[in-house]
Design a protein around this nucleic acid. Structure first.
Lengths: 353, 353
DNA sequence: GTGAAAGCGCTAACAT
DNA sequence: ATGTTAGCGCTTTCAC
């Protein structure tokens, strides 16, 4: 290694010498700690500025066990939902002096274990898990302390750990009501795998809405959150005898696959089949999709989970897990309302030339 | 902080004691260093396994200046190109024991500076910059050593630093030839900002292809890589007198915006206007877009840049920057070829039910 | 071939 | 209010 090129700047000792005080005094000033005479403080501050001293987080980490490193666990960063989430998590963390390492778990417990173990030995302080699956226990035991974990997007199944999630059930309920209002009676739901609790919650909301309508029928196709699972579900349904007239995809990303398949089948949306997604990603807003969806306020989800984690990390004393369920918002667009809605959206967003 | 819960495992001292040797010997064994008698080595190894000893990267970092941390700088993680890139970078790095911190620069030099400074004080070893803009010099001087940097996607303008990029010019040339072959004579190009060198290269390829065709005309609309810039460009053109019959977007993401605007204008693609993107993202493959594009082999770009950086980090001695220009591949799809191509794509990908 | 000892840059008792 | 000192867990001369 080019050791030489690693710019080792001035150390705390240099500052102490320059200010004519001891290192502990400098250390105290650095952390706004205890009582330091105003005059001394000023003198130290001057030396710090003069030398351009910046404390070494590595040395700090060694002695304090703190690294200012947190990780964001997601099942698949190429699903548009996660980059949006990651961006807001990162913004919040950056502001508080933390760096965020993003990891793809692919919903595999071994990946979670491997990654967290490695980062832990690098001094990882906390984790935001946006895709908890069967790795919940592993993560809990690796991190040892509940306050070092926040779940988001998917609610944990077995612990009282903090979480910030959307009101999946309410959002799905509202969406389904919307479809029922439009006279749809055979509704298809393309789910994700069962270990994702948000899927179950959305399913519950859908059933809840449908149970009031006696002649309503629910078709379920189990997918895996992939774009292609949306595609496959639609193709299978459309070949069958009683295809649904409306389809709810478990995510916007899955809806994209479904929409593609409908296009391939030469079916018009929403005239032949209505379609709705879930998430409220930027993608769903494209006039090309004009996708009715349930907005999760992804940025809020990300920001809040980062805030909560960093607070928990900073706070000693009794620990009370935070459980937040944020309201969703139904976004009505052309994929269920048709051209009228499309036009409206277009007119409103009159283009600034 | 809950100091107690930080599982401080066995240290090198424990291992030394258990094996009845000194810490230096254990250290040597850990790094397969120098000469250690086979018997001793075995004994030490046994103690290591027995105690489940794992060296502390933090302590290592303190003494050696190494952190096993690299960063990937991107302009905007919500542009689908970057998550795909990030994923492959991360996979490669993970395998080699490195963690990747992803940062959004938003093409702002101040962001690059702030982030890299912070990470540097955390022991950052290297950076892959996928969106170099006006921050090239800043980055170079911050990192101090060229071997700690690899550029990808956009080629650096002022330095001999290593890079892995696509043959932007060749890809754009080939794409434009394709459009010319289809008898398009008025072609619009939605660019990105001028500081991105890949934009200039693509422009060059386009001009190169058009200069052989006397009656061909190029319209340029300067965008900013945002989806909305694609939208705005199309709307402006379509209101004008001589709208292009074919549009090339600087990225798939921009093409998405353009496609949306075309839909809003009730223009059929490709019958009224042909459209092509650049990147070869997963998005472009959706039957909904069926977007003709130039495949950059994003995964290769990511993997190679990680490989090169980690090699450079590991190698001492003379340093020879690596410059790789990877070939692109023209992906012909419905957005330029029409329904025929659509159908074909569909038939080929017969769905496994 | 192996060990002793001196740090890396900082924090946190414990003194004064 | 400030200084002294002992480490944090490891690497790395320099002896033996």
């Amino acid at each position: 290694m080019s050791r030489d090129s690693l710019e080792r700047g001035p150390t705390i000792v240099d500052v102490a010498r320059a200010a004519g005080v001891s290192v502990s005094t400098v250390s105290r000033v650095m952390r706004d700690h205890a009582d330091v005479k105003a005059a001394t403080r000023t003198r130290v501050r001057e030396s710090i500025d003069l030398l351009g001293y910046r404390p070494s987080p590595i040395a700090r980490a060694l002695v304090s066990g703190r690294s200012r490193l947190v990780t964001l666990l997601v099942s698949d960063i190429t699903n548009p939902f996660y980059p949006q989430l990651a961006k807001s998590v990162e913004q919040e963390a950056k502001q508080k002096g933390y760096a965020v390492v993003i990891c793809n778990t692919e919903d595999r417990t071994t990946e979670t274990r491997r990654y967290v173990e490695r980062l832990l030995s690098q001094g990882l302080e906390g984790v935001i898990h946006a895709s908890v699956a069967r790795d919940e226990q592993v993560l809990l035991s690796l991190m040892a302390d509940e306050r070092r974990i926040v779940f988001t997007n998917r609610r944990p199944a077995h612990s009282e750990t903090s979480y910030v999630v959307s009101d999946n059930e309410g959002g799905a309920f509202e969406l389904t009501r919307h479809l029922l209002t439009l006279e749809h009676r055979r509704i298809g739901f393309i789910t994700g795998p069962k270990y994702a609790r948000n899927v179950a919650e959305r399913m519950k909301g859908i059933r809840q809405a449908m149970k009031d309508v006696t002649d309503a029928e629910l078709l379920v196709s189990e997918g895996d959150f992939s774009v292609d699972s949306g595609r496959r579900a639609v193709l299978t349904w459309m070949r069958s005898e009683n295809a649904p007239t409306a389809v709810i995809a478990v995510s916007d990303s899955v809806a994209l696959g479904a929409l593609g398949a409908l296009a391939d089948c030469r079916l018009r949306v929403p005239e032949d089949v209505a379609l709705a997604g879930f998430d409220g990603t930027q993608l769903s807003a494209s006039p090309l999709l004009s996708l009715t969806t349930v907005d999760q306020h992804i940025e809020t989800l990300g920001r809040r989970s980062a805030q909560i984690l960093l607070e928990q990390l900073a706070t000693g004393g009794r620990f009370e897990p935070v459980h937040e369920v944020l309201p969703t918002q139904l976004l009505l667009r052309g994929s269920t309302l048709g051209a009228a809605a499309d036009r409206r959206a277009f007119d409103l967003k009159a283009v600034p030339v």
